[in-house]
Write a protein that binds this DNA or RNA. Structure first.
Length: 587
RNA sequence: GCGGCUGUAGUCUAGUUUGGUUAGGACGUCAGCCUGCCACGCUGAGGACCCGGGUUCAAAUCCCGGCAGCCGCACCA
């Protein structure tokens, strides 16, 4: 089969349909286009909003997750703390002969037997030396490599017109949550567990974004950070979901070269240690259900565990929720990372702000405590200007250790200083400890809005009698109802417009169409996935009834105009089926 | 980012080999007619040679550069 006769695949068809019916298209086309940027049209924007609305219903409304919005431009300090400045850049080398580019750290791992952890730490200079020392050459043409250079996948800018202050476009929305943790914890009335979600644009300067909505340089991410007490990791929702199953591809199987899907219940996954955090397992079930609601059956979904070297730097354990699409096979729509206390701890180190929360014990703990009090009167004259530093170091040392060491050795070594008993006063007293401070742990479900839009489109796509139908689940369809005239004369348009205005006032998203034949209008509506069509005919003028047409079955029922708002409300909230909307109607 | 192929209305495309009158068609869109339930038909309208430079009397067509798309390689933390 030649390329010319090959039938286009679904991705091509969906993209063509998306352009033609204004769901989305490549941005900046009048200037030739820029790859990696997408503009949503009326229908696409609506579809995306409806999908995000479902996410909000699921997490914000039902779970009480708090939603926030934070800026895209972020001072460099934040991403230094989060580790992104170190991890989002990759040393690359270019072959001088064939111009192929390679990840320098990957070359070193492979040919110099330097571990990935060590390779990451090397400076450009050290990378260069290592390549020269091990005489690494281009694997394709044996050419030598040029100077290693960093490729930074974050967009960099300066903040303010005359400023040198470096800022980055955020590559994830999560940090906007972590940096506000103290205030958010207050917002949650200082109770764990709680979650914070944000939906917003992120920027990643991809090297070669070629997959439309699947991979672009600016896209919408839904990051949900769920904070819990590591000593109380139990999820109170587990009992509702423990019998649900998850299709897992485990790291241990991947290591053996198998991508076998193991269908296990949540309970088993936790008991067998496949998933390390209860909350994570529940979010994975919710993610599965969300995608089912977007039209992706369970058997087209899987959760694939990341191998240690595939994982993001912040994750203890990580699963990608993947959906099977025709063009590329499995693609990620959400990531489920167990970030532990990594981010808050790092921000605590870098900012100096205490990110710990206070937990009161059920009963205050009375315990004998050793207190080591530096005697400044004696420290001062001996240590002079270093006295304050020594005192500070002493107060940071474990008092028990200081006491034990002094009792045993007659002194305690503090860095280069030797502390002998005359410098300190050691007392033991009973103290009442009311509670303790700790950094909460985090599990993070993170969804790609745009990819969910794409899979919703691909899974909605059907062909019936050579006509294209987008069978969106009724609650994400961009437009809900079409209002039509059987023929556009004899007062039918006037009556139909009344129905149209009435439905708009009732809050539905409605389109009125009287152009061309009725069949053509039905076809046009099917192609953009409008679930219902209401047709005003000659009967309407006699008895105020209309017909409702179902997008998927093309069946029709007849009901009274005045009953429409209530019936449609029920229908779109899945409280009624199509057949409940009226009496069967045959034309 | 590298290599190969490609770029014509909203969409799909003819024309490019061999430069030459007003760039042709289909679908869609709009206006009018028609139309009693699944893209009927008729009439009319609007709509395109990716951008820049070069060669030439003359460039959609040839050459160079850029941008973009497709395929392969690499990349996707």
């Amino acid at each position: 089969m030649t390329d010319e006769t090959k039938t286009p695949d679904k991705f091509t068809i969906i993209n063509e349909l998306a352009r033609r019916r204004c769901f989305f298209w490549q941005s900046y086309k009048i200037y030739g286009g820029v790859s990696g940027f997408v503009t949503y049209g009326f229908l696409g924007a609506k579809l995306k909003q409806n999908i995000e609305k479902k996410v909000r219903e699921l997490f914000v409304n039902k779970l009480g997750i708090l939603e926030i919005e934070s800026p895209i431009i972020t001072p460099s300090k934040v991403f230094e703390a989060s580790g992104h400045v170190d991890h989002f850049k990759e040393p690359m080398v270019e072959c001088m002969k064939c111009k192929r580019r390679f990840r320098a750290d990957h070359l070193l791992e492979e040919f110099a037997e330097i571990s990935s952890l060590e390779a990451e730490k090397l400076s450009l200079e050290e990378v260069k030396e290592a390549i020269e020392k091990h005489e690494i050459r281009c694997s394709e043409c044996e050419g030598t490599f040029g100077e290693p250079k960093y490729f930074l996948t974050m967009f960099k800018t300066t903040i303010g017109p005359y400023s040198e202050a470096v800022g980055y476009g955020r590559p994830e929305a999560a940090q906007g949550i972590f940096v506000e943790f103290r205030r958010l914890y207050e917002m949650a009335r200082e109770k764990l567990p709680f979650g914070v979600m944000q939906i917003g644009h992120v920027l990643r300067n991809e090297i070669s974004p070629r997959q439309g909505l699947i991979r672009s340089r600016e896209f919408t991410i839904i990051d949900l950070e769920f904070f819990f007490d590591p000593e109380k990791p139990n999820c109170y929702l587990l009992k509702d979901y423990e019998n649900e199953t998850l299709p897992l591809v485990l790291a241990e199987n991947k290591l053996r070269g198998s991508e076998e899907i193991v269908e296990v219940t949540v309970r088993d996954a936790l008991e067998k240690g496949y998933i390390k955090a209860e909350w994570q397992s529940v979010f994975m079930v919710l993610a599965k259900k969300l995608l089912v609601d977007l039209g992706v059956p369970t058997e087209k979904q899987r959760f694939i565990e990341k191998l240690p070297w595939e994982k993001a730097h912040y994750a203890l354990q990580s699963f990608d929720q993947e959906i099977y699409v025709e063009r590329w096979g499995w693609i990620e729509v959400s990531g489920h990372a167990y970030r532990t206390d990594y981010d808050l701890k790092r921000h605590m180190q870098f900012s100096g702000i205490d990110m710990r929360v206070f937990k009161e014990y059920e009963k205050p703990v009375e315990k004998e405590q050793t207190v080591v009090k530096p005697l400044m009167v004696r420290l001062g004259p001996v240590f002079k200007e270093e006295a304050a530093k020594v005192a500070k170091m002493l107060s940071e040392a474990d008092p028990e250790e200081v006491e034990a060491s002094i009792r045993k050795n007659g002194s305690f070594t503090l860095g280069k200083y030797r502390i002998t008993p005359e410098y300190v006063e050691i007392t033991r007293s009973n103290v009442k400890e009311l509670g303790k401070r700790f950094i909460p742990y985090v599990v993070e479900p993170s969804f790609g809005s745009d990819r969910m839009v794409y899979v919703a489109l691909e899974y909605a796509y059907r062909v019936k009698d050579d006509r294209v139908i987008l069978s969106f689940p009724r609650d994400i369809a961009p437009l809900q109802v079409g209002v039509y005239t059987l023929v556009s004369k004899d007062g039918l348009p006037e009556r139909a417009l009344q129905v149209y205005r009435m439905l708009i006032n009732e809050g539905f998203s409605v389109e009125y169409d009287e152009a061309g034949s009725i069949g053509r209008r039905y076809a046009r509506a099917d192609e953009i996935g409008m679930p219902l069509g209401i047709t005003v005919d000659y009967e309407t003028l006699k008895d105020n009834t209309i017909t409702i047409r179902d997008r998927d079955s093309w069946k029709q029922v007849r009901c009274r105009i005045e009953d429409l708002p209530e019936l449609l409300r029920k229908y779109f909230r899945w409280k009624a089926d199509f057949n409940d909307l009226g009496e069967p109607f045959e034309s």
